[in-house]
Design a protein around this nucleic acid. Structure first.
Length: 413
RNA sequence: GUGGGUAUAGCUCAGCUGGUUAGAGCGCCAGAUUGUGGCUCUGGAGGCCAAGAGUUCGAAUCUCUUUACUCACCCCA
């Protein structure tokens, strides 16, 4: 027996309708927002992710599925969607389309991690990218799309946290101030943070360790260090969100783990998913396109974890509408099978979903099966129906039966 | 990579301090109703009790090892 690889999941026939529902809602919202779909390959040259995500990040330094192909190229299964879109944008000269350009994707992404609740080695992301506008209205547009989707699918227990991590210039100043402050408190911090002090002090800000939290509580805030331009941008974004009725909290402790973010960062988080509460994360990345060789292009976007979204909906007690079959044609004996096939084909040609027996089971068992697949109507075809040309159609919801001729069935079902 | 937990039927789980033939509920198949679902009743199929070793007259149960799964740290969606 060969098992499914660690950290991956099958979407089974009994569950796939939930995925289809989410995807349908995604497409609906994107249509309303004039966001066009883009599809890029499942794998890319490894260098793309080294240059965009940052080779010091955890994602790149230890979580990528990287291998050499038979032509000795270094290939990586995409660990996230944003860099791939940027590559395609540059390579296909999408700036030649009228800007701004809004795109979305639904894609599997791969990270070699220890799986746990809400964390897989292959998961699926819905993402939106908006290219070309540096305006805080663009940030708001993208956040609004995520918010509308989440609202439309009916999630509860979800909060939007926003922050600004400034531009690279502000961050240099902030990093210096942060290190200066933390250097006086190194003894009280956890081992991880002592290490991070040297490698990535920004990350200490969202350490979950209680002692570190206390130290961080009186640390300088990034918001005190961002430049006038970044500050105006962030203030304006808050005004827009407030005016448009999108509830949010400013949370200076959110820091994203991918290097390309600038200015706005945001997360939709919940407490009902265990340790992995981030359902959607995103922000602005004005320097991403130049980092991989394109012209300066302001961008803002997000990624949303579809598995996490589904888990949250299940936790919220969401009832998904299950797919149903319209008609089941019960076959009483082998003599009637061809007629049943004929009726089913006829119904299907009219756009009705229809099913008949393949198991040579009793009529009773066929009714049970019809019930299970949610058939709305059942018609039994037996030898007497073949002789008389008449049949009864039974409505399963209340058991009511109506007489029909087989010709009626053909034209009125 | 580092910890904690779990492993018995398709699923969710009982199985007491070792005792003979391995249990329930749900699900599946069938019968009661010889051509009509849902409710009820009855029956059936389905287990090398994760694998290996050890202790013992005797192991699903105790010990050790391995593996898998799971939760958490780190990080992210």
């Amino acid at each position: 027996m060969v098992n499914i690889p660690k950290g991956t999941k099958d979407v089974l026939p009994s569950q796939s309708y939930k995925w289809q529902y989410i995807e349908e809602q995604i497409r609906n919202v994107c249509k309303l927002y004039n966001i066009l779909e883009i599809r890029t390959p499942t794998f890319e040259h490894t260098e793309l992710f080294l240059r965009s995500i940052g080779d010091e990040t955890d994602v790149v330094s230890k979580e990528m599925y990287t291998f050499e192909d038979k032509g000795h190229r270094s290939i990586t299964l995409k660990p996230e969607g944003t860099a791939c879109i940027a590559r395609s944008y540059i390579e296909n000269n999408l700036e030649a389309m009228s800007l701004p350009l809004k795109m979305f994707y639904i894609t599997p992404v791969f990270r070699y991690e220890a799986p746990q609740a809400g964390r897989l080695r292959e998961h699926h992301q819905f993402g939106v990218e908006m290219y070309g506008s540096p305006s805080p209205y663009a940030d708001a547009e993208v956040i609004s799309a995520a918010y509308t989707l989440l609202k439309n699918v009916g999630v509860k227990d979800l909060a939007l946290n926003i922050n600004s991590i400034g531009c690279p210039e502000c961050r240099v100043k902030f990093n210096a101030a942060l290190k200066e402050y933390l250097s006086h408190h190194l003894d009280g911090m956890c081992e991880n943070c002592k290490r991070r002090f040297a490698t990535n002090p920004l990350r200490i800000i969202d350490c979950k360790n209680d002692k570190c939290k206390q130290i961080v509580a009186s640390a300088p805030s990034i918001l005190e260090f961002i430049c006038d331009d970044c500050n105006a941008h962030f203030t304006k974004l808050q005004e827009i969100l407030t005016a448009e009725g999108v509830p949010f909290n400013v949370n200076p402790s959110i820091v994203r783990g991918l290097d390309y973010y600038t200015k706005t960062v945001f997360e939709f988080v919940t407490t009902s998913l265990g340790a992995q509460g981030t359902v959607c994360g995103g922000g602005r990345y004005d320097n991403l396109v130049t980092s991989i060789g394109g012209k300066p292009t302001p961008c803002v976007g997000f990624g949303m974890g579809i598995e996490r979204l589904l888990m949250l909906l299940e936790a919220n007690g969401k009832e998904f509408v299950q797919p149903r079959t319209d008609y089941f044609i019960a076959c009483q004996s082998e003599l009637c099978r061809d007629k049943c096939r004929f009726l089913v084909a006829d119904l299907r040609s009219k756009g009705c979903s229809a099913e008949t027996d393949f198991m040579s089971r009793s009529v009773k068992a066929q009714f049970k099966y019809a019930d299970k697949i949610g058939a709305k109507y059942v018609v039994v075809i037996g030898e007497s129906e073949l002789e008389t040309g008449k049949a009864q159609i039974k409505r399963m919801s209340d058991g009511e039966k109506q007489d029909k001729t087989l010709d009626d069935l053909r034209w009125t079902l």
